[in-house]
Design a protein around this nucleic acid. Structure first.
Length: 454
RNA sequence: GUGAUUGUAGCUCAGUUGGUUAGAGCGCUAGAUUGUGGUUCUAGAGGUCGCCGGUUCGAGACCGGUCUUUCACCCCA
């Protein structure tokens, strides 16, 4: 047992059964992304730490996987820092690369680096794994796949609306019941502004994000613990407890935020997005949720989150608008908006609800039993013709007992088996066995292909 | 990072207050069946009880550490 190999905590192997299902998800989102004009890119698994650090907040920095420098890295490190066991100082000297934490920041880096080759607005999608060093738990892995779609170089709210359409179409195709929650960072900023706590917007959003989980009282306690005055906490109560339809909520907010220019701008943005969605007659449930904050500190406008309605697993898609992400890398005034589909959580949801269709396209339809000798060529020739018409076929590579070969077909769920021994070869025919019914037919090659086609 | 929790055959799990040679079901291999799988019958293989250390005459069981699993918190897809 001790010698048994293993994989790192929070990572997983994907066997054929799982990969067929995973690819179904990837193929579906890819198809939708392309339909809306997004094109694929890929970026390296590792980035320079300077690219990654400081983009995800303090918490995010801790969750970055760092890669040790090559060679005798310790001899180049500051011996004082080593003696003092000052992890942070030592880390800077022995590691300059890290595994990417998401796809958005590497994308911003990509946009800046390739700005002269890119035509804006630039619409791209990216389906790759990301890594986070937090403790695995339900629906949380250390290595997982994100499917990102982003548009950069356009301020238009049409992009927000389009992404909502993408969400609707993807989950419609996958047959998952979802609700999209939307908020706007500008409204949150407005709220912080009117209570005179603009610098504490992150604390405030993090706290009110927990309303569902811990309840109003605890949220208020947390706000107080963060140093908000009683008066300030009182002022935001109506905001936290806002209810009604989206337009009712917005109307009420307009009153509360009347004196905040930025707050009103956020409201106007949401109004337009809602209006367009209504016009397009989207079936997707889109709900304004002021408790939706999201920790990432680079969002500046819309914030999205999608939850599966039938499974409790946290959000399965998230995103938002970021006005100045490329600014950190030296390219000003490029606004972007994007969302990320969490493939692994979507998989978990679909698996739990048994939503995966039988995927016949990836299954072998017919197995030829190997009789060896001259029969091998006879079979190989027939298999070539069967494959030419697009039917998945395989030939058992070794001449072993038929029992074993039949069993192989059985285990792989192959619906048809062809027997081509001396008898068949002499008659120029093929014995086709239906593995479900057990029925056997003697057929010419033409009839065989015809039968396998339907 | 904090607090719990799990680990015995390939898989799912039994294993009494510490006591001889650690079991079951499923799966696997072989045979019954030399051109027929999925059913049935028979036989067989497969374990350093996660790892390291400690207590004891004696540890799968008790203690410490470590890794792993699962879950909550923080945070997040």
């Amino acid at each position: 047992m001790a010698q048994k190999p293993s994989i790192p905590k929070g990572t997983r192997d994907f066997s054929p059964v799982e990969m067929v299902k995973r690819n179904y998800i990837f193929d579906t989102v890819r198809k939708v992304f392309q339909k809306y004009g997004y094109l694929p890119i890929e970026t390296p698994a590792m980035e320079n730490l300077s690219t990654l650090m400081g983009k995800y907040g303090e918490e995010g920095d801790k969750l970055l996987f760092k890669i040790l420098n090559s060679g005798d890295f310790l001899s180049k490190a500051d011996s004082n820092a080593l003696d003092e066991k000052a992890s942070n100082r030592v880390m800077n000297q022995i590691s300059e690369k890290g595994l990417r934490y998401d796809l958005t920041v590497p994308f911003a880096r990509y946009v800046v680096q390739h700005q002269n080759d890119i035509t804006f607005p630039f619409k791209r999608y990216q389906i790759q794994p990301v890594w986070r060093a937090d403790r695995p738990q339900k629906g949380r892995y250390r290595e997982f796949f994100q499917c990102d779609v982003d548009v950069v170089g356009s301020n238009s709210l049409l992009n927000e609306v389009e992404l909502i359409q993408v969400v609707e179409e993807v989950y419609n195709l996958l047959n998952i019941n979802v609700a999209l929650k939307i908020n706007n960072r500008k409204i949150l900023s407005g709220i912080a502004e009117i209570i005179g706590a603009s610098d504490q917007i992150v604390d405030i959003t993090v706290a009110i994000d927990k309303l569902d989980k811990i309840g109003l009282e605890k949220v208020n306690e947390e706000l107080a613990a963060k140093g908000l005055s009683e008066q300030a906490i009182n002022m935001i109560q109506p905001v936290i407890l806002l209810s009604g339809t989206n337009s009712e909520k917005l109307a009420s907010l307009k009153g509360t935020l009347a004196s905040s220019e930025i707050g009103l701008k956020g409201i106007a943005e949401l109004e337009k997005v809602f209006a367009y969605c209504e016009h397009l007659n989207l079936k997707l449930e889109v709900e304004l949720d002021l408790t939706l904050a999201r920790g990432l500190n680079y969002y500046t406008g819309a914030i999205f989150e999608v939850k599966a309605k039938d499974v409790a697993i946290g959000s399965i898609t998230g995103g938002g608008r970021y006005d100045d992400l490329t600014g950190i890398f030296g390219l000003k005034d490029v606004s972007g908006v994007g969302i990320s589909f969490g493939a692994d959580r979507i998989y978990d949801v679909m698996n739990q609800l048994e939503l995966f269709p039988l995927n016949d396209g990836v299954r072998t339809k017919v197995l030829f039993v190997n009789f060896g000798g001259e029969d091998e060529l006879y079979a190989t020739t027939a298999i070539k013709r069967i494959r030419e018409v697009g039917i998945n076929a395989e030939f058992f590579p070794d001449e072993t007992k038929i029992q074993k070969q039949m069993n192989y077909a059985n285990k792989k769920n192959i619906p048809f088996v062809v027997l081509t021994g001396e008898k068949e070869r002499a008659e120029g025919e093929y014995t086709l066995k239906n593995m479900l019914s057990g029925e056997q037919l003697h057929l010419s090659i033409e009839k065989l292909i015809e039968t396998l086609k339907d």
